[in-house]
Simulated scan of single mutants.
Amino acid sequence: MSTKTVSENFLKASLPWETLEDGLKRQFLGFDDKIMMVKVTFKKGGVGQLHEHYHSQTTYVVSGKFDVTIDGETQTLEGGDAFYVPPHAVHGAVCLEDGMLIDVFSPAREDFLKD
């Protein structure tokens, strides 16, 4: 795990992006051990695979269109919509139009901070 456990106080748009699979990129927008905010961009067809974790998560859809599944229920969400994922709920998303999500996790996703 990274030795960094707290982000800088002020975070500018020039922060580095991490490239993930399936046309996804993420940028850390602030965190400590209790909370983490992450910006994630998707290309059309990008998939956030179904998964679960012990963290609470709330997500704001900045732009685009996504089919979001939480515990077997799927809804189509667009810019301005949001969703909440309780701990251990199986969830994922499929990007229908290029878009961006802002994820907030509590506690922070320590698995994202690995070197």
Rank of each mutant, 00 (worst) to 15 (best):
A82S: 15
W17L: 09
K25Q: 13
F83H: 05
V68D: 01
H51L: 07
F112T: 03
G45Y: 10
L24P: 02
D67F: 05
L50T: 06
A89P: 00
G79Q: 09
V104S: 10
I35E: 05
Q75G: 09
A13I: 11
Q49Y: 07
H51A: 08
T5K: 12
T19M: 09
A108E: 00
Q57V: 05
A93E: 00
A82F: 12
L50I: 14
K34N: 12
L29Q: 06
M37E: 02
P86M: 14
E73S: 13
E97N: 05
L24V: 08
Y54D: 14
V104C: 13
Q57F: 05
S14I: 10
G23Y: 05
L24R: 13
L113P: 04
L77S: 01
D81P: 08
Q57L: 02
G46Q: 03
Y60E: 04
D22E: 14
T5E: 12
V94W: 02
A82T: 13
L101K: 08
T3G: 14
D67S: 12
T74Y: 07
F31C: 04
T69Q: 01
S2Q: 11
G80T: 10
I70N: 00
K4Q: 15
P16G: 06
L20D: 00
E18Y: 10
P16R: 09
D32S: 07
F112C: 03
M1G: 15
G64H: 04
K25V: 08
F42R: 00
V94G: 03
V90W: 11
D67L: 09
H88M: 13
G45E: 07
L11G: 01
D111N: 11
V47K: 10
T3K: 14
G48N: 07
G30E: 07
K43Q: 15
F31H: 03
T59L: 03
G92R: 07
L24G: 02
G46Y: 02
E21T: 15
T19S: 15
F105P: 00
V85Y: 01
T58K: 03
V47S: 05
D33L: 14
P86A: 15
E18Q: 12
W17N: 07
D111E: 13
H91G: 03
V6S: 11
F112G: 06
D98C: 08
P87L: 10
T74N: 03
K43D: 14
G45H: 10
T3N: 15
S106I: 04
T58G: 07
D71A: 15
I102Q: 04
S14A: 15
M37L: 11
D103A: 09
Y84G: 11
T69A: 03
V6Q: 13
K65Y: 10
G46P: 00
S63F: 01
K25E: 11
P107M: 08
N9G: 12
A89D: 07
V94S: 07
A108R: 01
P16C: 08
K44F: 03
V6I: 13
A93F: 05
G72H: 07
F112L: 11
P86F: 06
T41P: 02
H51N: 07
E18D: 14
E73T: 12
P87E: 15
S14T: 14
H91V: 09
Y84W: 12
D71Y: 08
Y54M: 11
V47Y: 01
Q57K: 06
K65D: 06
F42A: 08
S63W: 00
S2H: 14
T58A: 09
G99N: 01
Q57H: 03
